[in-house]
Write a protein that binds this DNA or RNA. Structure first.
Lengths: 147, 147
DNA sequence: ACACGAAACTTCGCACACGAAATAATTGCG
DNA sequence: CGCAATTATTTCGTGTGCGAAGTTTCGTGT
């Protein structure tokens, strides 16, 4: 009874957290007319230059079919290109287009700073608390699902 | 640098948590051919009998348009019915159909027990840790978004 | 009485998000 | 060599999820 209500509380807070982060990302990328996942892909490609679709999907923790759709929309906007790998004909290499890199001033440094500022507001202990709590949650949820 | 990586870590864990819970709900409702949100709506309607759409949307923390779509699909399966309120012509009252209530043996008690079991595996302190951590996270994220 | 804003829903268009099936290329094995 | 199994990616179908626009109804002010 009480425990049930508290579990609802936890679930709702996690949902709100994820939504809040999504809204924040949305706001950051809005000026470039990018959605949150699209902006994350662009940010990843800025660091890694050329990547396999499967690598993007692993980093973002999304299924390949989902990433494929996001890439479709980025390609339609002329932001990324797909090219077949020469060494392995199965893999597709994704990269930012030159025109996008030149035309757009992307405030990724500001974005990173914004996140580090956020993190720096938390003390070491607080971060430990957070990671501990998340680990507990994962343990609780995963334990029973095996049985 | 380090903080950034830790923030990624936190984000990823939160995403995985939400997904894991979703998968669990999915598995629980699968035998009734219901998706997770559909099953939650059915569970809510079992307790409240007749509800306004806006009440369902508030409890589930979803937009009305999203709830409207979920109700569409439940209605198509003959699980719920919509009827206009007589006192206020704007509101739609949602309830489970008699045929569904009779035909389907819904293991909601098992589902609740499953969740309470999960929660009971955690000590009081652990739950406090979790709620504290989630509160910290909310504070950190929301603080800067106001500025 | 009547205009008009507010409230409750629905509809529409878009973007995720996933799993299953299809496609295409590579590798391994007999 | 040839064919089966694997790997990488796309396509398809379904179901969320949201905001904006549209519809109907209610209340309120005049």
């Amino acid at each position: 009874m009480e425990g049930l209500e508290r579990s609802y509380e936890v679930i709702k807070r996690i949902k709100r957290l994820k939504e809040t982060m999504h809204v924040l990302l949305q706001r950051l990328f809005k000026e470039m007319n990018l959605t949150a996942p699209q902006g994350m892909v662009v940010g990843i490609l800025l660091k890694h230059k050329k990547m396999k679709v499967s690598e993007v999907s692993a980093i973002m923790d999304l299924s390949m079919s989902t990433v494929s759709g996001i890439l479709d929309r980025l390609e339609k906007q002329g932001i990324i290109t797909r090219e077949k790998s020469e060494t392995d004909g199965r893999v597709i290499l994704v990269s930012l287009t030159d025109s996008f890199k030149k035309s757009s001033h992307i405030p990724f440094k500001e974005i990173e700073e914004s996140w580090t500022q956020k993190i720096n507001r938390a003390s070491e202990e607080e971060i430990d608390t957070i990671l501990t709590a998340l680990a507990i949650l994962e343990r609780l949820i995963n334990e029973e699902s095996e049985q």
